[in-house]
Computed example of a mutant assay.
Amino acid sequence: MTGDRLSRLSLNQRTVANATLAEAIEACRSAGLTSIGVWREPVAEVGLDRAAELIKESGLRVSSLCRGGFFTASAPEAVEQAHLDNRAAIDEAARLGAATLCLVPGGLPAGDRDLAGARARVVEAIERLVPYASERGVRLGIEPMNPIYAADRGVISTLGQALDIADRFPAEHVGVIVDTFHLWWEPGVEEQIARAADRIVSYQISDWITPLPPDTLLARGMMGDGHIDFASFTRAVAAAGYQGDVEVEIFNADLWAQPYQQVVDTLSERYLQLVQPHL
């Protein structure tokens, strides 16, 4: 019974940053999960073909590959390098059978204060990538990020902004990632989730905890440890028709110091308590 209730739960590999890919896969299997979200760096450590083999042997789905994006460079050589890296990420996603390639928009280039220009370059870069992603059968997922990251990591801050970009392209090619940590604060987010409908390619969850740590990149908490109303957020995602995996993605130094199997067991319990009843 619990196994059926965990059938949509996915472990984002970054949640157990102290585990190898093989260890993360085994932790998923031990906890009864059927899906994993993988990161490019740990995949590269074992090699793409070996990573694909490990995942295939495990029987796990790949809910996402993190990450592509970082589109905001303005120097021509940097723009070209980002494009080539994103093509490589698309190839990796195709090889792994990932449901989506997560695109982190990127922040302002050093010394640049032109936020509107950076956002425009995100659109241009995605437009250039879409034909190749379509050819490789990879769906791109734009991830809006909490405004605290606008300067250095994500100039697209709201689900509304992400949808304005995604709407330029066919839904089967470009969608959006709904992440509770990034979007819980957004006014009218329920309406934007409803608007997203067939554009939601991933639902990612973690909590907003306070006080924020000095390194705000590590500010995510285990569900239930912070301020997010997972019941209402999840109901909105379900009402929009999303039926894919629910991926737990937590950047937190304290969690990374814990045994990874313990972390996976805890997140499974919290998912069953706070999220699964509302799907």
Rank of each mutant, 00 (worst) to 15 (best):
V46G: 11
H83Y: 13
L54V: 11
R67M: 10
L33C: 07
E53K: 10
W39E: 04
G37H: 07
P42C: 10
A22I: 12
D85N: 15
A52C: 11
V38D: 04
I36M: 11
E41C: 00
T100H: 03
T34R: 15
S63T: 05
F70D: 09
A51D: 02
G47Y: 12
P76F: 00
N12E: 07
V62E: 06
A17Q: 03
A31S: 07
F71Y: 15
S10C: 14
G32S: 00
S58E: 14
E45Q: 13
S30T: 11
A94P: 02
R14Y: 14
A89H: 06
R50C: 05
L101I: 03
S35R: 11
L65Q: 04
I36P: 05
G69F: 04
E80D: 12
R61P: 04
R67F: 08
D85Q: 15
T20L: 02
E57Q: 14
A82K: 13
V43M: 07
A24L: 11
L48G: 13
L60W: 07
V43D: 08
A22Y: 10
E23M: 10
G37R: 07
S58K: 15
E26R: 09
T20Y: 00
E53G: 03
G69A: 07
E45M: 12
S58M: 13
R29G: 03
I90H: 14
D85H: 13
T20F: 01
A89S: 10
T72L: 13
G37M: 12
T72H: 10
P42F: 08
V16C: 09
T20V: 00
A27G: 03
A93T: 02
L84F: 02
W39S: 04
I25E: 01
A89N: 08
A27T: 00
L101R: 01
G97H: 07
E92K: 09
C66D: 15
I36V: 14
S35G: 09
G59Y: 06
P76V: 02
A75K: 11
E26S: 11
E53Q: 10
T15R: 02
F71G: 14
F71W: 14
E80L: 14
Q81I: 03
D49K: 15
T34P: 02
A98P: 00
R50M: 05
I90Y: 12
I25A: 03
T72G: 07
I25W: 00
L84R: 11
W39F: 05
V16S: 07
S30C: 07
T15E: 01
S30V: 10
V38C: 06
G97Q: 05
G68V: 02
A27R: 05
R50E: 12
R29Q: 08
R14W: 14
A99H: 02
R40Y: 02
A19K: 09
A52V: 13
E92M: 15
I36K: 12
R50L: 10
F70K: 15
A44L: 08
A31D: 01
Q81D: 08
V62T: 08
R40H: 05
A51R: 00
L60C: 08
E53I: 08
V62A: 05
L96E: 07
F71Q: 15
A89P: 00
